[in-house]
Design a protein around this nucleic acid. Structure first.
Lengths: 269, 269
DNA sequence: CGCGCCTTTGAAGGAGCTCAATTTAGGTGG
DNA sequence: CCACCTAAATTGAGCTCCTTCAAAGGCGCG
């Protein structure tokens, strides 16, 4: 239950209806967004993003903050561990992963991020980022100068409240990941991962049953605390059991209930 | 390196100098704290807590927020999953654990909390707590009505900034735990745990080499993603290797460098 | 078309878990 | 103050799940 209420536990992409590969050429609602690129008030993601719950006048104030956009190519990083912190980033389009670099050079993926989610909050505490944020596909983010956000938070109560909620939900999300890493077996972890992806795609108007993963098996494994071979094996097992149809990056969830049952396994067995 | 900079990854107690078992009858500085219980400005924990970095006038504003104290007996909970959220809590004395309840009744410990740390931020996002917070010994907390804190944040820039830092550091701490759970072996996890405890005790003026654990092996295991038997075995192994002297809840760290070496194991082997 | 990266699959090994027995510590009441 | 009682900790033995090592197959891209 904890996992199902958390917001951002992974990162992948789904193409609804026509399986268009180009991220830009999406459906009509997304196209509308493209026409008014600089305003939160007209952004199709506003219900998922920082403006969520804000009324007209308050959103206008938020619009003033978001005056810069930034395009990040697949494989490039938005920020790296140690970079000085100045801004938060709201994902406009694309996908990212966050990871911590280990001493031995390996990195642990701590999150996957989808459009509407806020990145960069790890840098607030020390004024330096602790995470690496890398685009998993060509992406675009809204740059929110943090000092401006703080200033606006002092003027607009709703905005402050909303920002606090975003940070708090991130904390709750992390708890879900800790639970996953601390108590679940490999099958449960992957099932949780897939269900979470499904839910987040649905929230964005995409298909909840079919999507394309943007990350490799190794990245999934890193996130779930498993080796890439294990991830691959369990995908295959799910496939054999008729739970999902997996072909490389393409995933179709065939039996949501079956996957959910897998999580209650502790009890039901 | 990530872990070493995180703040709150565990929970245990140390008695400096005389090994007094009563939590109240601590040394002189703590006694001083008891004399002025209701003011952040005179609180011995202010450098670790919310007032950290605030100047005189701003602290006075903070003092207005913290007008309630609450005593929690060992084993009692400060709040439970599902409770409606109204306040944050700054630990005045004592120790807590935070945990998420799993469907099957087991709980995963997500954090241990020491004096000066802020609890309850998990409730901001949904207005309901997602964690259970339980006292591991008789404790006292300062109650901070969240609506008041938000109000004050709109008036005092430094306070807002400080609160954001506290939340952000909690996010960074969580990343450290994820890294621990996702990539470390049992020995590394326990070594990390002990070093983190040591560091946090030191920050509070206690001995960094000797302390008493307030949690059981099972709770440590839950936090570290291990079974209690494994925790016990590794304590024994550390003991044999001369890294620590462990006797039940009492821990003396004999070889800090040795423990640290254990973490660089990936490289150094 | 060929090269590299990602993925899949197999077989063997190991780290940590499960189950179980024993010891120890701490709290309670006689 | 001691005996009892319960909860916590220790330790052992066997097993399981995941990892490690290895090889082959597939997809995309220049």
């Amino acid at each position: 239950m904890t996992m199902s209420t958390t917001s951002a536990a992974l990162g992948a992409v789904v193409q609804i209806r026509p399986v268009a590969t180009a991220p830009q050429s999406t459906s009509s609602t997304a196209a509308k967004v493209e026409r008014c690129p600089t305003h939160c008030s007209s952004c199709g993601l506003r219900e998922l993003c920082l403006p969520c719950g804000l009324s007209g006048a308050d959103i206008d104030r938020l619009d003033e903050l978001v005056y810069t956009r930034k395009r990040i190519k697949r494989g490039e990083s938005l920020y790296q561990s140690g970079d000085s912190f100045k801004s938060l980033y709201a994902i406009r389009s694309g996908f990212f992963k966050s990871s911590v670099l280990l001493e031995d050079g390996r990195d642990q993926v701590t999150a996957f991020h989808m459009p509407g989610e806020i990145m960069g909050m790890d840098g607030i505490g020390t004024e330096h980022h602790s995470l690496n944020a890398v685009a998993l596909e060509d992406s675009e983010v809204c740059v929110i100068l943090f000092s401006s956000l703080e200033q606006a938070s002092m003027e607009v109560r709703g905005l402050q409240r909303q920002f606090h909620k975003v940070m708090s939900r991130e904390l709750v999300r992390d708890q879900g990941v800790m639970m996953l890493l601390g108590t679940m077996r490999a099958e449960e972890r992957l099932a949780t991962f897939l269900l979470n992806l499904s839910q987040r795609f649905m929230a964005r108007g995409y298909s909840q049953t079919e999507f394309n993963l943007r990350m490799t098996r190794e990245e999934i494994g890193s996130y779930l605390g498993l080796k890439l071979e294990t991830v691959s094996r369990i995908f295959s097992r799910f496939h054999e059991e008729g739970l999902v149809a997996v072909q490389q990056k393409n995933v179709r969830i065939l039996d949501v209930a079956g996957l959910k049952r897998m999580l209650g396994r502790h009890l039901a067995n």
